[in-house]
């Protein structure tokens, strides 16, 4: 009778395992396709851990179910003697502290320890590459990022780009001290406010643009509570902290934005391989830290243009449609 309990455990655990086996094949139940240069590494680490933990899940649950079946108590079973503790040189030493140590205990301590150490150290390079602030992309050379300022507030992302002219200056590889200083001044803040705002800065709301293969450096801050700049498709997540500006950078490997001649607008969620709109190519910035009642709908989008020319076409378009600078900006500049 008691043996049936092992079946209950077995079936439930198999159902759990089954769910993890099926989920990757259900389109919306698994990791969305990663579209940044580092997403492959993050996913690889995820899969390494998945396989290792999956192995230990199956091993330990199977042993539990098997023992529950095999050793289900029957009246009149003869009890079994306890195994003697291991003997011998190394164990003699161990026995001072662990008089009951068995060989198998040494094995199941050392093997998991090594595996865990491997898992831990395998994370370090990728983590530092993504987040270590001393590796933040700098101005100069081909790697020069485009830079924008994202200021979070309840419940939207206010984004500020430099003018196309300024951006072009940063991007020309013949940088001089003045350009470098200008690049840095863009990221200099007084609280959440830019310390050196320019009249021709380009503000947009809930949109972050870059182009395929171009690193974007987001200067992230917030004017009210903590928010989190979360772009699952790019494997990016960083809290915005009141009082601090935190750099976030990533490089998209695919484009999703084109100019739609019919609507006369730049539209995202476009799959360039199939040439059709595709919701799999909508890459949202979905706030991931509870920030109040509107938290769930604090959602922006990442627009990745096909190339540099297209990006500048967009930026200049916004510049023109907004010139002359709107009033609030003048006020800021006058301060």
């Amino acid at each position: 009778m008691g043996k049936w309990w092992s079946a209950l455990f077995g079936i439930v655990m198999l159902a759990c395992l089954g769910m993890f086996m099926v989920a990757p094949f259900v389109p919306t139940w698994w990791l969305p396709e990663g579209v940044s240069t580092h997403s492959g590494q993050v996913d690889a680490l995820f899969y390494i851990i998945l396989y290792i933990t999956g192995f230990f899940f199956v091993l330990t649950e199977a042993l539990l179910v098997y023992f529950m079946y095999k050793y289900a108590g029957q009246p009149g079973t003869t009890p079994r003697p306890t195994e003697p503790a291991a003997q011998g040189g190394f164990y003699a030493m161990l026995h001072r502290w662990f008089p009951d140590a068995h060989r198998v205990e040494v094995a199941w301590t050392i093997v998991p320890a090594l595996i865990l150490l491997f898992i831990a150290f395998a994370q370090v390079p990728t983590w530092l590459e993504i987040k270590d602030r001393s590796r933040k992309p700098a101005i100069g050379g081909e790697k020069t990022p485009i830079q924008c300022h994202v200021s979070a507030r309840q419940f939207e992302w206010r984004v500020r780009y430099p003018s196309s002219q300024r951006l072009r200056n940063w991007q020309t590889f013949t940088t001089n001290e003045k350009t470098i200083a200008d690049f840095k001044s863009f990221a200099s803040f007084d609280g959440a406010k830019p310390r050196h705002p320019h009249l021709d800065d380009v503000p947009v709301v809930n949109e972050v643009h870059t182009w395929k293969g171009q690193t974007i450096l987001v200067q992230l801050n917030t004017i009210d509570v903590i928010h989190s700049f979360n772009v699952p498709h790019m494997r990016v997540k960083q809290d915005a902290l009141p009082g601090r500006t935190i750099p976030v950078w990533f490089t998209p490997t695919k484009a999703n934005t084109r100019y739609n001649e019919e609507t006369k607008r730049w539209e995202d969620a476009f799959n360039f391989t199939t040439g059709k709109p595709d919701m799999g190519y909508r890459w949202e910035i979905a706030c991931a830290e509870l920030c109040g009642w509107g938290h769930h709908r604090m959602i922006g989008r990442i627009y990745v243009h096909e190339n540099k020319a297209d990006f500048y076409r967009w930026l200049e378009h916004v510049e023109q449609s907004q010139a002359p600078p709107t009033k609030p900006q003048q006020k800021v500049a006058a301060r």
Partner: peptide, 23 residues
């Protein structure tokens, strides 16, 4: 507890946590 302990490893791995934190 096996399940809870094993899922802890995913979140402890900083790069993986980038994706799964606050999910």
């Amino acid at each position: 507890f096996i399940i809870g302990g094993l899922s802890g490893i995913f979140m402890a791995a900083t790069p993986v946590d980038i994706y799964i934190h606050d999910t």
